[in-house]
Design a protein around this nucleic acid. Structure first.
Lengths: 112, 112
DNA sequence: TCATTATACATAAGTAAATTATGCATAATT
DNA sequence: AATTATGCATAATTTACTTATGTATAATGA
């Protein structure tokens, strides 16, 4: 990922969110979509992406189907039932996290 | 810090923001303020806090004054001139980061 | 036509930023 | 009297990346 290490720890929930929204995606596609959505701000590196996807598969969060696109392989990932549950939890955590950042960056003045 | 590792990489900008807003703080005070602001969501651990503060001091981002409160020591930290510049940069990065997260968690549907 | 960029996967070594555990010391609370 | 709170600090470990490297095909451009 690009820049400042702020994104550290956010990759997993980001991938879960992508899969939740798009149903079925392959790795390279995820990197491109994130780059596009964030206007180039966030670039997922392959060294981070693939090992994480493998871990999620091991954990039964995602499942895969490999397909050929012409002569090129694509490995499609989608959320399992357990993965959907896990994603809901991760999204709640994300919300709380973003809310907390808001509080810190934009603190409400104490009245009184 | 507490929970889910989402906050990984955010501690430094959070501390810079606190110092920017409050002028002068000691370590323990920072942990308490963050806990309060985030309604208990974010708990800064001492093992993360103190080494980071020391690093920032080495880098000339913050400077310290040690004072006694009764018989207890407090080490006050404040931003140096260079630290204020650095904080402005960090805050811009924070904004971009939060914006990107928003885009991912709440993607805009493509019209057309 | 030959080199570069894009697509598409994968893994290994190294690093940064935490967590967890531990330590010291005083003050306040139960 | 024991526990919790205040206040600092450091060491060992773990996590989650980055950087580097590897393989292979397709498209683009000089």
């Amino acid at each position: 990922m690009k820049k400042s290490s702020l994104y550290k720890g956010c990759l997993e929930p980001i991938l879960l969110r992508l899969l939740k929204d798009n149903g079925r995606m392959y790795g390279y596609q995820m990197t491109q979509m994130v780059k596009e959505i964030t206007k180039g701000e966030l670039t997922i590196t392959e060294g981070a992406l693939y090992p994480l996807l493998h871990k999620l598969e091991e954990q039964g969060i995602v499942e895969t189907e490999t397909e050929m696109n012409g002569s090129r392989m694509r490995k499609y990932y989608s959320l399992t039932k357990a993965g959907k549950k896990q994603t809901a939890v991760a999204m709640d955590e994300m919300k709380a996290f973003m809310q907390s950042l808001e509080f810190i960056v934009n603190p409400k003045p104490v009245i009184g």
